[in-house]
């Protein structure tokens, strides 16, 4: 029985590092489609990741602003109340709006201005207005904070930043300051989800020929 000796094809010293090139299979359309699908999955995954990171940063920013508002409120609450009210007055707030946000009557605010004492809770509420104004002016460079707060958030809703503050939603006002011009509709959706239906109206306010505001049906000329 003859023995067949297999020739050893192990590389010789001269051939080391010169392995014969492997022949690649010709890529088919299916391969390309698979690659595109894979890349698409990766890009979607990255989009989700970046969205999560963006939301986390937003939440972190919001938490830090809340904390800043709290600490500034504590600091302002230690101040002399008439001085604090004078500062809000200098910014251009109306006494009616300060009273509304503080949850008291206008005569109560008038008494505080004249030196009558206020409860701790009321001092905190006034201090929080001053704290928010400080953050809006210094961090977000809003020059006319009172005017900004008084401006309607949307032409179809009679709501402004002062209404949000009166409902204890200082967080939404800070979100508006942070994202300005931002998305007031999103803020309104969170504040009053049914605002579109609630304030839908066929009537609009217009400037009459005498220069004063009047009411008319939308689309009519007079």
């Amino acid at each position: 029985m003859s023995t067949i000796r297999r020739i050893d094809y192990a590389p010789t010293g001269a051939s080391v590092g010169h392995a014969p090139p492997r022949l690649e299979r010709t890529r088919t359309i299916q391969d390309v489609v698979d690659d595109i699908g894979h890349l698409r999955n990766r890009s979607e995954s990255l989009v989700h990741d970046s969205r999560d990171i963006h939301e986390s940063i937003g939440q972190l920013h919001s938490d830090s602003l809340d904390e800043e508002l709290r600490s500034l409120t504590v600091r302002h609450a230690r101040e002399h109340l008439p001085t604090l009210l004078d500062r809000l007055s200098t910014l251009g707030f109306s006494w009616r709006d300060i009273a509304k946000i503080a949850g008291v009557s206008v005569p109560a605010v008038r008494k505080w201005r004249q030196g009558e004492s206020a409860t701790g809770d009321n001092r905190q509420r006034v201090a929080r207005i001053a704290a928010l104004c400080e953050i809006a002016a210094e961090r977000y460079i809003i020059a006319d904070v009172a005017g900004w707060l008084e401006t309607p958030l949307h032409p179809d809703a009679p709501l402004n930043g002062l209404d949000l503050m009166a409902s204890e939603r200082f967080d939404l006002v800070l979100a508006l300051a942070r994202e300005q011009p931002g998305d007031p509709e999103r803020v309104l959706d969170e504040f009053e989800p049914d605002w579109r239906a609630r304030y839908r109206s066929d009537v609009e306010v217009f400037t009459a020929p005498d220069g004063l505001p009047g009411l008319r049906l939308i689309g009519s000329d007079s």
Partner: peptide
């Protein structure tokens, strides 16, 4: 008085008056 018709200008009118 005319500026008071614009909500955005009311704070400015109060500041001016004070």
């Amino acid at each position: 008085q005319e500026q008071l018709t614009d909500p955005q200008r009311r704070a400015g009118v109060r500041r001016a008056m004070r």
